[in-house]
Design a protein around this nucleic acid. Structure first.
Lengths: 117, 117
DNA sequence: ATAGGCAATCGTCGATTAACGATACTAGGA
DNA sequence: TCCTAGTATCGTTAATCGACGATTGCCTAT
């Protein structure tokens, strides 16, 4: 089954199947740490806004995101790095630009963890 | 007239009907800040664990929470303050003790905001 | 009235975060 | 090739966080 770019996710290649995302429970110390880590990643207004922009397809490229925010390019890049490290966004090199998109696996995971608190 | 504990024990008095919780949208800059604030509050493993303890009724009194965690009393108190300030827990004076419980309005709000990202 | 226990607050310290400008890196175009 | 544009990283600074012990304040029981 070709991981063709479905209408919803065009920007980034298929997820590398993060191992952590498979054998996960929703409770216990590990789950607590995981939720805390994800929550911390969205614990800043700029990062929430970036996530929203990506989920609404308002922007997909780093420079677009920079244009939308009242922050320096380096600061935005750092926020993107944090989101990426938390597993909430993915990126792909698109020529000179870098495209970002939501990592739906991570977002699902966050929602699942929050929902059972 | 000991502190009576009714079975389903809502530990705390009815919610003071926080004004912010009524006329809220799920998008926009305000919603971004609100979600960031709530997420930041649960962006620490100890606070996630406290929320879980409260939601599972494993503990309701400050001293019990302190006993469950490998942290000093003052540290736990600070975490509780943060959760309370974010609107995720409420507290009530129960004689000498202080009872804590989930603020379901705040939790619902968090879940709603997360769900539409 | 006072003693004792519980929780909040204070003061401090080191670690982390957020922001910026400057610089380095990298891929395309001249 | 060299230049340029788009990103990432580096280095710095101020602010915030997390943890602790000590202290304070408050209730209850004695």
């Amino acid at each position: 089954m070709a991981a063709k770019t479905s209408p919803n996710e065009l920007c980034c290649p298929p997820e590398p199947a993060q191992p952590e995302l498979s054998l996960q429970t929703l409770e216990g110390a590990e789950a607590d740490e995981e939720l805390a880590k994800l929550a911390k990643a969205i614990g800043h207004p700029a990062r929430v806004r970036i996530l929203r922009m990506l989920s609404r397809k308002e922007a997909r490229v780093c420079s677009q995101i920079v244009d939308e925010l009242p922050l320096a390019q380096s600061t935005v890049s750092e926020h993107l790095r944090i989101l990426k490290e938390a597993g909430l966004v993915r990126s792909t090199q698109d020529g000179l630009r870098v495209g970002y998109c939501i990592n739906f696996d991570g977002l699902r995971r966050l929602k699942a963890l929050v929902s059972i608190v």
